[in-house]
């Protein structure tokens, strides 16, 4: 049995070598499913429920793209990836896009040959300390022990920050967030550093969250966003503008509640009309149906709704919009116009 499948797979591999040149968009349409890489589990961003149904902030991007391309937000195969496997999974074509809180950096974009299509969450590395430590700024952490995940950009940022401020620290290497949480609570380190969103969700699980504070310094820029392979610009455009549709929908006040009414007929606002396909042919330009953006927005709501549902102040994580507010409200979330 195993041998047959193995050799069969090799044969298929040989045949597929010739036919692999087709675009990702056509592949996804032919397959009827979007293969979307997500984390194996991160609070607020992606996690399966008891029935194996995925939900979260990154998952919502996958669902929006699936809805835009296939008209069905459920037509997604979620492929859990670890920090070590995510890039090969994308490069090898195992997944069509990666929405796995991945920081947009120069080398990932240029050297690893990926295209980041936008930013869905502006994160940054912060510090959490127990209140009893009496520290109010990260610059007062001279000589402290720091719990730090190894092999991530956070490790490098930490070294840069302490060197730039000419203070010393002692790293306590940890492998996962779960371990960091335990070590920090057990007092193995004075401070725990990771992305600010991660710190907030970690603190929310503590018995007494009030006993711990997040220091004001954010020592790095961590723009997280979905990415696709280099060289398939049609597909990159689809993912980019699906994300932009969610952002624009919030800006223009299109929500999952009023979208049915707004997309029924052309209204007064021409940009809404173009977005929802009641006017113009933006969908056709992308190679999608006219109601692609309507489907994407209906999947899980507009950007603001998604944020509120998975990360916002009504959830246990309780993140404020901050940098992730619309540009009209002092944030960085900004979509080019739909024109």
């Amino acid at each position: 049995m195993k041998k047959t499948v193995f050799l069969g797979a090799l044969t298929v591999a040989g045949l597929a070598a010739g036919a692999a040149a087709a675009g990702t968009l056509d592949d996804v349409k032919a397959r009827g499913k979007l293969n979307c890489g997500v984390t194996t589990g991160l609070v607020g961003f992606a996690a399966p429920d008891a029935n194996g149904e995925w939900s979260g902030f990154d998952v919502a991007v996958c669902r929006a793209v699936a809805a835009a391309v296939l008209g069905d937000s459920k037509a997604v195969e979620f492929v859990p990836t670890t920090g070590k496997t995510r890039f090969t999974a994308l490069a090898s074509g195992e997944i069509d896009m990666l929405a796995r809180n991945t920081t947009w950096t120069f080398s990932r974009d240029v050297d690893l040959k990926f295209t980041f299509v936008g930013v869905n969450y502006y994160d940054g590395q912060g510090f959490m300390v127990p209140k009893s430590l009496g520290v109010s700024s990260a610059k007062e952490l001279d000589g402290s022990t720091v719990c730090i995940q190894t092999g991530t950009t956070t490790e490098l940022n930490l070294a840069d920050f302490f060197r730039a401020n000419n203070i010393s620290y002692e790293p306590v290497p940890i492998e996962t967030n779960a371990e960091g949480q335990q070590q920090y609570l057990a007092g193995a380190c004075d401070t725990y550093t990771t992305d600010a969103s991660g710190l907030a969700s970690t603190r929310a699980t503590f018995e007494n969250p009030g006993d711990h504070v997040l220091l004001p310094e954010i020592i790095s820029k961590e723009p997280l966003g979905p990415l696709v392979r280099h060289g398939d610009d049609e597909w990159g455009d689809v993912v980019r503008w699906s994300l932009n549709a969610l952002i624009t929908a919030e800006e223009l006040g299109v929500t999952s509640a009023n979208i049915g009414e707004m997309s029924a007929a052309a209204g007064d606002n021409p940009e809404i009309n173009r977005l929802l396909g009641t006017e113009g042919n933006l969908g056709e330009m992308l190679g999608l149906s006219a109601d692609w953006a309507k489907n994407a927005i209906s999947a899980d709501g507009n950007f603001g709704e998604i944020f509120e549902k998975h990360l916002g102040e009504s959830t246990p994580i309780g993140l404020a919009r901050g940098l992730n507010a619309q540009w009209t409200e002092g944030g960085l979330i900004y979509s080019p116009p739909f024109r």
């Binding site: 984390t39 194996t40 589990g41 991160l42 609070v43 607020g44 961003f45 992606a46 996690a47 399966p48 429920d49 979260g56 492929v79 859990p80 990836t81 670890t82 070590k84 496997t85 999974a89 996962t176 967030n177 779960a178 949480q181 969700s201 970690t202 929310a204 699980t205 503590f206 959830t315 246990p316 994580i317």
Partner: peptide
Amino acid sequence: SVIGLLDPLGLIAGIRGDANWNG
């Protein structure tokens, strides 16, 4: 679990990723 297959240990990340059970 290191290569993203959801064996029992791999599932822990997913279960802890649920806001109800984080921690």
